[in-house]
Design a protein around this nucleic acid. Structure first.
Length: 538
DNA sequence: CTAGGGTTAG
């Protein structure tokens, strides 16, 4: 059939009708038609076919036709650059995370962000929508593309051919939030106000997310409180911000106000509420919302909701309840659920349960580097050194590598990046001198580095050294040297903070009288006067 | 005279 259609290009309207009438139509069939239509003269036909594809999915249920990895290359054959760019951004939207693997299969013709960029670069004088389409495509990119967005934006400004609007700024603000680049974010906010660009609820959401992501929950709340109108996603962003900062009570209050305001509650809302409860140890409240979410809000619990509740129970030490939920839940548990329970088994010292969960996790996700570290740490905790060593060897032989830890430091709008054991910073020498001074002063206050959390990240002989050189142990000294006394230190980490660095940051905040705001992979830590806002519960 | 935009646990 498909071959027939390829031959049928002169009779395109007929085959088009065939697609509409054939039961059931398939994407494969539609792609075959597109192939016929995608010679340059047939762009209108190709586009109408595409709209048929994209309109019938994924909103309609059941989705009949969904563009797939083969749809877009066919369209590109016919499209001029500006149309191709719009289509390319569509392809990123539809194919999402799959785009990267598609590019490998299909060759460098389209689909990934790289192909959007190639299409964009073919446009001689990009107009505003073209810039916006490209920036938005970067924003949706699975792999972090925040610096690319900021770089493109600064090129756009310096070229001066088009003026950014609020849609452009949404992409820029999103990038600032991801990087934790408070300085740039404030600049973008000021730009919006100065140019009198519309601050609608989409912009509001972006600003709330950016400020929360940069550790300025106060500014996020201010933007949220002064916004003229808010929808579900505005509320969700604010709730998520409160959750990440451990403000569980405030999140529950906001949730109550949301219900009072008539703005609809969705699955993401409930997820944020559950996450708030998990981070603030509000277990009873969390369980109550979880139990009634279906009856009271009409939202069926999904895997994320179960994951959040398992995490909440596990952190709180109710390991048996967490295990019970895993066994009773009507959905197949995923690797993340086992991981949060295993991490809790390590913390709460339930090694027997932890080992059982390791068996489950191994079946689910044998390749993930995080799993191996988790497993090795648990074995180390059990003093089962042979198994721990074996796990580490397995990692090596499988070529699995941990992603290197990094810390970003925002100082007066300038970003400084530090990696583990980094020696590339211009002020490296001063930093390492400071590292030693801090160690000395902390040990006067009774701090002694424990090596448990890094045991299996490094070879035995480097253990004590590497501890000192975790990326935040370089960023903090640099901030102490280079920023004004009394100003808060803001750090964005790519991984979770280890117990020892957490302890050390608490002491630095007291000994040096500095507030430290640290965003880690999962949440925020506000260190002040020797205490952390997470209450050592993370 | 449009295009182009926001939330999601571990």
């Amino acid at each position: 059939m498909s071959l027939l259609l390829r031959l049928a290009s002169p009779a395109l309207p007929i085959s088009h009708r065939l697609l509409c009438s054939s039961l059931p139509p398939t994407t494969f069939l539609a792609n075959s038609l597109l192939f016929a239509a995608s010679s340059p003269r047939c762009l209108p036909s190709a586009l109408s076919l595409y709209s048929l594809l994209s309109l019938s999915s994924p909103m309609s249920s059941p989705p009949l036709l969904r563009p797939n990895a083969f749809t877009y290359p066919l369209l590109f054959r016919a499209a001029p650059p500006t149309v191709a760019l719009a289509l390319a951004t569509h392809s990123v939207k539809f194919l999402g995370a799959h785009a990267a693997s598609c590019d490998r299969v299909l060759g460098p013709c389209c689909l990934t962000i790289a192909s959007c960029r190639r299409v964009f670069d073919r446009i001689a004088c990009p107009d505003l929508p073209a810039w916006n389409a490209l920036l938005s495509a970067y924003m949706r990119c699975a792999s972090s593309a925040a610096d690319a967005i900021l770089e493109l934006f600064s090129r756009m400004i310096s070229l001066g051919t088009v003026r950014p609007n609020e849609i452009t700024l949404v992409a820029v603000i999103g990038a600032c939030g991801e990087l934790g680049a408070l300085g740039h974010g404030v600049w973008a906010h000021t730009y919006l106000v100065k140019r009198q660009l519309a601050i609608n609820r989409i912009v509001t959401t972006a600003l709330v997310e950016m400020y929360a992501g940069c550790g300025r929950l106060d500014l996020a709340e201010h933007v949220f409180a002064t916004a003229s109108d808010r929808d579900t996603r505005c509320y969700n962003a604010m709730l998520q911000g409160l959750a990440a900062h451990g403000h569980g009570r405030a999140a529950l209050d906001l949730f109550d106000r949301m219900r009072g305001s008539g703005v609809p509650v969705d699955g993401v809302t409930i997820l944020s509420v559950l996450c708030s409860c998990a981070h603030a140890e509000l277990v009873d409240e969390g369980l109550e919302y979880f139990d009634k979410m279906e009856i009271e809000f009409g939202i069926e619990p999904r895997i994320e909701h179960y994951g959040c509740v398992v995490d909440m129970l596990s952190r709180a030490g109710r390991l048996d309840d967490a295990e019970k939920l895993i066994h009773e839940m009507p959905i197949v548990p995923n690797a993340a659920i086992y991981r949060s329970l295993i991490r809790a088994c390590d913390i709460h010292g339930n090694l027997e349960l932890g080992e059982r969960m390791i068996t489950e996790l191994r079946q689910h996700d044998p390749d993930d580097s995080g799993n191996h570290v988790l497993i090795a740490n648990l074995y180390a905790r059990m003093n089962r050194w042979e198994e721990a060593k074996k796990t580490r060897k397995e990692m090596k032989s499988m070529g699995i590598d941990k992603s290197p830890g990094s810390s970003l430091l925002d100082m007066n709008g300038v970003l400084h990046e530090f990696l583990v054991g980094d020696k590339t910073h211009p002020a490296s020498k001063e930093i390492y001198t400071m590292v030693e001074e801090i160690e000395a002063r902390l040990s006067e206050h009774g701090h002694r580095s424990s090596t448990t959390s890094v045991l299996f990240d490094v070879e035995e002989e480097d253990k004590a050294d590497t501890l000192t050189y975790h990326s935040e142990r370089l960023a903090i000294p640099f901030a102490l040297i280079a920023s004004d006394p009394g100003t808060p230190i803001r750090i964005i980490k790519n991984l979770r903070v280890c117990a020892d660095c957490h302890e050390s940051a608490k002491l630095v905040s007291r000994v040096y009288g500095r507030e430290i705001v640290m965003r880690d992979r999962t949440r925020f830590h506000h260190f002040r006067e020797g205490e952390c806002s997470c209450g050592d519960f993370w």
